[in-house]
Amino acid sequence: MFQEFVQQIVNGLVLGSTYALIALGLTMIYGILGIVNWAHSELYMLGAFVGVFLVVHLKLPFLLGLVLAMLVMALFGMAMDLLVFRPLRSAPEMNMIIGTLGISIFLVQAAVIVFSPNPVRFPTEFSDAYLSFMGISITLQRLMVFCVTLVLIALLNYIIKYTTVGKAMRACEQNRDAAKLMGIDINRISLITCAIGAALAAAAGTLVGPIFLVSPQMGLAAISKVFAVVILGGMGNVPGAIWAAFILGLAESLTAGFISSYYKDVVTFCILITVLIIKPAGLFGRSQIEKV
């Protein structure tokens, strides 16, 4: 019982890490660019495929592959900013959602054509290494997901808080027009934001790809959860998204472990709907008064 419990906690942390890494980019892109990016979890899916290519086909060491995959996807994120977000920037919110949903369908189907619809295995040098402790064994890969996530979150925190770029990003989040008047180059900031967001999603894909399987549908399966995380955390709220990711990850894996795996998706939405009814701005969102 105790072992089962610990096992589910570990699973929950892995799941939470995945959600956190994807959700961070999504919430930053919303906060700083004002774009609702429905295609964001496709960056996670593509990141995983890039990881497979680098680690399995080119036989690079896993951690090097991880860093390279993040770089490749950062470039992809910048391309997405130029080709998709910039034209959509002044569109109504619903049109943004429809537009990026179209891009999501495009990317998933393009992946199906290029990589085939069948799931791919992603073995790494850490997949078969176990760490045993008090009768509980955890694969090194799982442990690494959690540790790397913490490192990336710390890094992101440093960038946002202490660098000039980070300060400019926060300025844009507060008030885009004022930031522009202060001489901040909005286009540059949004490129950097998209690069960081895409790199984080790619990290998630490469980290958990070896635990689950890699397939073109993995992004679709994650998107609604990730949005749930972002909404619970308060749209645009970075620390909120991190907390919400781990809360939902744990809730989901404990439900799957102790109640039924049928209900694990239902639980996410029940939590979401309940929170939205009680606190529409999300668990960690400041309730904002609309300027009239």
Binding site: N95, I98, G99, I105, I113
Partner: peptide, 12 residues
């Protein structure tokens, strides 16, 4: 693939 792209272009 075409529908996805078409949806983006049409909405834009």
């Amino acid at each position: 693939v075409i529908y996805g792209l078409l949806m983006f272009l049409v909405i834009l």
